[in-house]
Structures are given as structure tokens and as C-alpha cells.
Simulated assay, not measured.
Amino acid sequence: MSEITPDLVRHLGVLARIQLSDEEVQSLTGQLDAIVDNIAKVSEVATPEVVATSHPIPLENVFRPDVVQQQLTREQVLRNAPDQADGRFRVTAILGEEQ
């Protein structure tokens, strides 16, 4: 068994800024414990001899060719902006936000 405890789940909730009820903490404790246990089982068989795969079937990206089209003017882009200054979008600063 892993070491997922209700206190750890509450701490993770605080870090994620998610308010959890006692019922949610109990439910998530069991769920996260099962997830960690399953990851541990996979880690046991994941050895250097086993080639890592991200998908069982090889995939190939299909891209369309880039085609230059008419671009919007700065005035058109900023027309519906809630706030603008000096020909740019103006947004509120987020630096210094509480951690």
C-alpha cells in the first residue's frame, strides 16, 4: 500500500486551492492510493529491456500546408479588446500574486 493519507489529500487540496469536504477527502484518499499502487505495479515491470511506448499503434501527424491569407489590422484586432493601451492589449498584472 502507498502512503496516501487524508492529511496529504487535504494538503494537496490547499496547494491546488480546492476546498474539499471530509467526504471528498475520504473518497480521494482511496482513489489516489489506488492510482499510486497501480503506478508502482507498472514501475515494477518497466525495465530497461522493455521499450517505452506512448501509443500501441504508430501515429503520424497530418498537417495541412501553410497558406498565407489576409491578416487582420491592429485596429481590427483591438476593436473588441476590453482594455488597450499604445496599440496593445492591456491586462492586469499577476506578478507578486499570493502563492
Rank of each mutant, 00 (worst) to 15 (best):
E3L: 06
E3N: 12
T5E: 15
T5Y: 14
T5M: 13
T5C: 12
P6Y: 06
P6A: 06
P6D: 00
P6E: 02
D7K: 05
D7F: 04
D7N: 04
L8N: 01
V9P: 11
V9G: 09
L12Y: 03
L12W: 02
G13R: 04
V14H: 13
V14Q: 14
L15F: 01
I18L: 06
Q19V: 11
L20P: 03
E23Q: 07
E24R: 10
Q26T: 15
S27D: 15
L28V: 13
Q31R: 12
L32H: 06
A34V: 08
A34Q: 10
I35E: 06
I35S: 02
I35D: 06
V36T: 02
V36D: 05
D37P: 05
D37W: 03
D37M: 10
N38R: 12
I39R: 07
I39G: 09
A40D: 15
A40G: 04
K41D: 10
K41L: 10
V42F: 15
V45E: 13
E49W: 01
V51I: 14
V51W: 09
A52R: 14
A52Q: 09
T53F: 08
S54Y: 09
S54N: 14
H55R: 02
I57K: 03
E60I: 11
V62A: 10
F63A: 12
F63H: 12
F63T: 11
D66S: 05
V67K: 03
V67L: 07
V68P: 11
Q71C: 08
Q71E: 07
T73C: 02
T73P: 01
R74Q: 00
R74P: 00
V77S: 01
R79C: 00
A81V: 08
A81W: 09
A81I: 11
P82V: 00
Q84T: 08
Q84W: 03
A85L: 09
D86V: 00
G87L: 03
R88I: 01
F89A: 04
V91C: 09
V91L: 13
V91D: 09
I94V: 11
G96P: 08
G96D: 03
